[in-house]
Write a protein that binds this DNA or RNA. Sequence first.
RNA 1: GGAGGGGUUCCCGAGUGGCCAAAGGGGGCAGACUGUAAAUCUGUUGUCGACGACUUCGAUGGUUCGAAUCCAUCUCCCUCCA
Length: 365
Amino acid sequence: MNFKVLYKDGAARRGVLETAHGQIDTPVFMPVGTQATVKTVSPDEVRDTGAQIILGNTYHLYLRPGHKLIQKAGGLHQFMNWDRSILTDSGGFQVFSLGPMRKITDEGVRFKSHLDGSFHMFTPEKVMEIEMALGADIAMCFDECAPYPAEYKEVVKAMERTTAWAKRCQESHQHPYQSLFGIIQGGVFPDLRRESARQIQDLDFPGYGIGGLSVGEPKPMMYEMLEVLEPLMDVNKPRYLMGVGSPDCLFEGVERGIDMFDCVLPTRIARNGTVFVPEGKLVIRNAEYAEDFRPIDENCQCYTCRNFGRGYIRHLLKANEVLGIRLTTIHNLHFLQTLMASIRQAIEVGRFCELKREFFKKYQP
RNA sequence: GGAGGGGUUCCCGAGUGGCCAAAGGGGGCAGACUGUAAAUCUGUUGUCGACGACUUCGAUGGUUCGAAUCCAUCUCCCUCCA
């Protein structure tokens, strides 16, 4: 994997990330395809929204259909017929979000499957075995994501474990083209963030995730953590803010030097009847759009906006027709991809701040 | 023509004397959603000058301190027999 920063505008960076499956222009937004699919849309449709790389998930794919099966299929790319880049998350976040169904020790995490209640053990070594079998272009280290709020001591523990596990991941990771990213933890404590950044970067990964943010803390707190990290991070490596993807947060992240983002937000809220527009979020399932036959966004070039009106989309959603959530999903993904493209373009010409100002003049988070 | 069963708030449906403006589900309306246990979850859903009042359980009349619940008549629907 190769990464190069082409332009800088303040702390904002415009770069190129090369993987075995192509070139990725950064800053980039990565749609989430947890179970080897971006929910409800086909790979062609995902590609047409402008996505250059998507996510898959170790935890889910290990439980079903099983990483060995995917390996037999020729790897995740072939299995799901996605020929651009893929990044797999390690399951660290599931350990966090599945809450009481797991037990964490220094060795790893013993957890109960949410599918059938069976017990499983994830260690850094096991997670590497799974991620290598999946064969994504980028694999994430197995980390421990501390919740918010959390006691200082608890966050220290998670941070130290994350470092120890990162070492073990690194030692057991070996793959012809897959890159392994480290993950920086440290909750909302500046000193722990600094310490984690130091520890993880000492291991020298080809890229770094910033984890444990956007887990319920106020946004300014997240931005503060990014500001703490920005000057400490290797300028030649991609920085990935994990789990962030609301339009306003994308701007704030890029402004603080982030190169990569992923988030379920656009696809999830799409399925729940909300779409992004330049003014903010529009709950298209609401009654006020029943007789509104304009596109979601008149200036949007996505398949949905070129072909359908709000009233029709609302009807599909109310009638529980799958096309409804497919159309809103396509629009939301396209919206974020277009937004990122405009951000990249603005950085190239040194107009990021203006673009951000213009954007927030309209956009109400 | 005879025998039986039934009409409940937008819909389906529980409720057989007070704890019932009436369970539950659907539908409607709204809110939430940030490394996906999510096409999920939460709230709300008679009216009003609303910590109270008023109207509502096919219609009308009655019994009772009190009726969606008991009685009478009417009306409509369903099933079976002729």
